[in-house]
Write a protein that binds this DNA or RNA. Structure first.
Lengths: 273, 273
DNA sequence: CGCGCGCCATGTCAAATGACACGGACCGTT
DNA sequence: AACGGTCCGTGTCATTTGACATGGCGCGCG
């Protein structure tokens, strides 16, 4: 039921992979385990540093490291995953397919984000997760998930925190789809992505390098492909957002935020798991 | 910034309160504390029963019980709450206001739901919460929140579970706003509400008694009031959904689910907090 | 009773968005 | 060089949805 291909929007395919930070791509597979001590997440802006005991415990918890190329599926809607992931590097999308092929992209995931929390509770997955760039994830076995709460309360607290943050992000998206028109939604999404990029150290000179097709934008914002295209051009003419296949630029974040009526703090530090 | 009143849709006002289960309303205030032993939530369909140690601990955690009348605000957008709530009885809505008065209702809350998790993390609230019916909440002090993870890992686990469930609900709503047309959205919302009502024992003979104005429906689904009205009538003529001011009836849930392209398990038991 | 008010219904027209069709740029493969 | 694939741009028209105006109905209230 989750694989119809007659959607009104075309399905994404693997394409030239883009690494968010310019790192060299390596062969896929689950080899070369990196010790948590050298975890690339530590030290990034926007991530609170973990304490030492915490790190040691996480290391013992970690089971393996996995890589995906752009376009590959990390999690499949309708399935049950046995592992919980932390995104180390790259960008993912989470989306849901309806039976007739309509697709709703629910959120973008950046380094530090949790992947598959639903699966950790033994629920059937309501969405798929796919790599937008070459990506590296850190995997934890699900069955040891409950141990976490017992042996490391701080981590468990952080986990709840992350779930609450993810929920807050969905709330933002929901407001966008419900109340904003096409151009406002586009401005909102561009700002959202750039800010997430900044927080995870993936933005250079105000420009986020990330290849997103207009079809994906449309499926995130609930717009048709054509209307997305036209609205994007209009925003470009206004100088608010310049969004190409491989880059997203918002010259004046404040102007764009005000255009889209976004309020609230843009930067909230995330805990480290 | 959160109080503009010039919205294109009218603001809800207090009106004849409706109790979901026919209980007699009592005077507002925070008096007459009910021991958790007699918690009205226990034994309801859809709630997993707590074990004894857990209950005792929750009882020590509980600080007070609060009541609200229809139309009263439980939490205010932009503020910081110092308490975390569990909804004992009644129905609430959670909504966000934009500066120009547009309103997006983010979710409906039913007995057993957590209220104010964001606030528990000391974040500024991004939404308001308002009572749709006479409501009773059970309040916990925020500063003791962290103790929970330490002393009762199972509860902490449940908390994460609840946050994940709430996130899944928002994902459903997001799919609705992004991919479904007006009538599908209405059918979806009606089914969603009836099913939540069933799960919390608030539905009688396939009909949910809950007063929701068309303006509130419109603000939940991102539709104009007028269009909501017309689409509602069309659904009624089709025999799919009969939604009046004070009742929601879905004669054939399966038909409505299929009309709205809903899939996945409708009933998932919730833990007890 | 008459009034104000919240809510729902409906008519008419306008605006936003979607559907379909086509062309063109780019790029890897043969 | 020709081909097929993906993606972006644009023209034309259809559909969905929104805006505005108006009336009706029930209900609490002085």
């Amino acid at each position: 039921m989750a694989d119809s291909d007659n959607a009104k929007t075309t399905r994404p395919f693997a394409q030239a992979a883009v690494l968010p930070d310019g790192a060299a791509p390596q062969q896929p597979g689950s080899g070369d385990r990196v010790p948590c001590r050298q975890c690339p997440l530590v030290g990034r802006r926007g991530l609170a540093p973990p304490d030492e005991g915490q790190r040691a415990w996480i290391e013992s918890f970690k089971s393996s490291e996995v890589r995906f190329a752009r376009g590959e599926q990390v999690l499949r809607q309708g399935g049950r995953a046995t592992r919980l992931y932390t995104l180390l590097e790259g960008v993912l999308i989470r989306y849901r397919l309806l039976e007739d092929g309509r697709r709703q992209i629910v959120n973008f995931l950046f380094p530090g984000d949790l992947v598959g929390l639903q699966a950790a509770f033994d629920a059937e997955l309501t969405h798929s997760v796919e790599a937008m760039t070459e990506a590296r994830l850190c995997a934890f076995p699900r069955d040891r998930f409950f141990d976490l709460a017992v042996s490391h309360p701080k981590l468990s607290f952080d986990l709840t925190w992350m779930a609450a943050r993810e929920e807050a992000a969905l709330e933002d998206h929901l407001v966008s789809l419900g109340q904003r028109n096409a151009q406002e939604r586009l401005a909102y999404l561009a700002v959202f992505l750039v800010q997430r990029g900044v927080a995870t150290g993936v933005v250079r000179e105000g420009v986020l390098r990330l290849t997103v097709t207009q079809s994906q934008i449309a499926d995130m914002l609930g717009l048709s492909l054509v209307h997305t295209n036209r609205s994007l051009q209009s925003l470009r003419r206004k100088g608010l957002v310049d969004w190409t296949l491989s880059t997203i630029a918002v010259p004046d974040i404040e102007a764009a935020r005000s255009f889209a009526q976004m309020d609230g703090d843009p930067y909230i530090p995330r805990p480290y798991i």
